[in-house]
């Protein structure tokens, strides 16, 4: 499945619009990671545990969106956007949404 943040990827033509699909998730890390992040915060720098948390959260949200699009019979999702919300200090909510479409490569169509 082709995923794109662009409205209209060059070289492709949208054949059918199937509507908005979305996926969301709320995740958090275990207490140990929170404590380690708290210690790292003293000297500053990247908090790898939380970066991992965000990566996991958006991967899960993307996978759910992809599953929704597959259910509609789409072969691509375009105009993908991500929204997030802050839930306390150790949890992340990620929402992914986009338009499920059926596209064909321009060369094949013509």
């Amino acid at each position: 499945m082709i995923l794109s943040t662009l409205e209209n990827p060059a070289g492709y033509r949208v054949v059918r619009h199937l509507g908005l699909v979305q996926g969301s998730t709320v995740r958090s890390k275990h207490l140990g990671r929170d404590i380690m992040a708290g210690l790292k915060e003293i000297v500053g720098g990247e908090l790898r545990g939380y970066t991992e948390l965000l990566n996991e959260a958006r991967e899960e949200a993307t996978a759910r969106m992809r599953a929704a699009a597959a259910e509609l019979g789409a072969n691509a999702i375009i105009s993908i956007r991500f929204g997030t919300a802050n839930i306390g200090s150790g949890a992340a909510e990620v929402l992914a949404y986009g338009t499920a479409v059926e596209i064909v490569a321009e060369q094949a169509a013509s």
């Binding site: 082709i2 995923l3 720098g45 965000l54």
Partner: peptide, 16 residues
């Protein structure tokens, strides 16, 4: 080109 979704996340704590 063939589009492919890429994503990146980062969480930083400020230096003291």
């Amino acid at each position: 080109g063939v589009p492919h979704l890429v994503q990146a996340a980062i969480v930083m704590a400020p230096a003291p």
